[in-house]
Simulated assay, not measured.
Amino acid sequence: MEHLLGLLRIHVHRGVNLAVRDLKSSDPYVIVRFGKQKLKTRVIKRNLNPEWNEDLTLSVSDPNTPIKLMVYDKDTFTPDDKMGDAEFDIKPFVEAVKMHLQDLPNETIITKIKPSRENCLAEESCIIWTNGKVVQNLVLKLRNVERGEVELQLQWIDIPGSRGLSM
């Protein structure tokens, strides 16, 4: 088993213009998968622009593994409907954390990631130094669906006694 590097807190902020899967709306929730870990947000009833504002925390031992995100519509009597998926790479974020930056001016941009065919970014994503922490805001365009985006924020949590990111 690989050694734990630290924890990744994913703040699932909101969904934007999600697909309709019920009569005129949907009851969306998000599942985040990372390796064998699987976390889920709560269901927001009848809303195509849900605000989850939930923190999901994953243990990170291999930063080369992409994080997969799936959005579903909660149904009562039938299987939940898929409302799109996305995946994103945490390597650039982990590299920024490894720099062990200190005392930068608040809101300093460490690096920028442009949308490409290899990622699900809807717009440029900045990894920034804010309030003494490395943070990345992402707007992910959902795939395999007619429309929809999910907004996230990543934040690193060091674990005392872990191998950490001092590689």
Rank of each mutant, 00 (worst) to 15 (best):
V30Q: 04
K68D: 14
L48G: 04
V20P: 07
M167N: 08
A96G: 11
D85A: 04
E124W: 00
I113S: 10
V134C: 06
L104R: 02
S25H: 12
L138V: 00
C120A: 11
I90F: 03
R33G: 14
S162A: 12
M167Q: 08
L101H: 04
R33K: 14
K68G: 11
V32Q: 08
K68M: 12
H3D: 13
K74A: 11
G6R: 01
V43K: 07
K91Y: 08
F88V: 11
H11F: 10
K133P: 05
K45I: 12
L152D: 00
R21F: 06
G15Y: 03
S166H: 14
S162Q: 05
G35A: 15
I157H: 02
P63K: 03
L152W: 01
P50R: 08
W129Q: 08
K91I: 14
K91E: 12
Y29A: 05
K40D: 05
Q136P: 04
L58Q: 02
L39H: 13
K98S: 14
L121M: 06
M70K: 14
A19H: 11
M70A: 12
V145R: 02
L8F: 06
I44L: 14
I128A: 11
G6V: 02
M99D: 06
R117N: 15
R21P: 00
A19P: 01
I90E: 00
A86G: 00
K91M: 14
I159C: 05
F34I: 09
R42Y: 03
D80Q: 09
G132P: 00
F34N: 09
G132Q: 02
L152S: 03
G6K: 03
R42V: 09
D55H: 08
R14K: 12
K24P: 09
E146D: 09
M83P: 04
H100E: 12
W156M: 01
E107L: 10
K91T: 13
I159S: 06
L58W: 07
L140T: 01
V134L: 02
W129M: 08
K24I: 15
Q153N: 09
S59I: 11
K98G: 08
S116L: 03
W52K: 08
G35I: 11
D89S: 10
V12E: 00
A122S: 08
R42G: 13
L18E: 07
L4C: 05
V71M: 03
E95F: 06
D158R: 02
N144F: 01
D22V: 03
D81E: 15
L142P: 07
P105N: 01
S61V: 09
T41V: 10
V30T: 10
E2T: 09
S116F: 03
A122K: 07
V94L: 05
Y29P: 00
K141E: 01
R9Q: 10
L121S: 01
F88A: 07
K112D: 07
W52N: 02
H11M: 01
N47E: 13
G164M: 01
G132L: 02
P66A: 01
V20K: 14
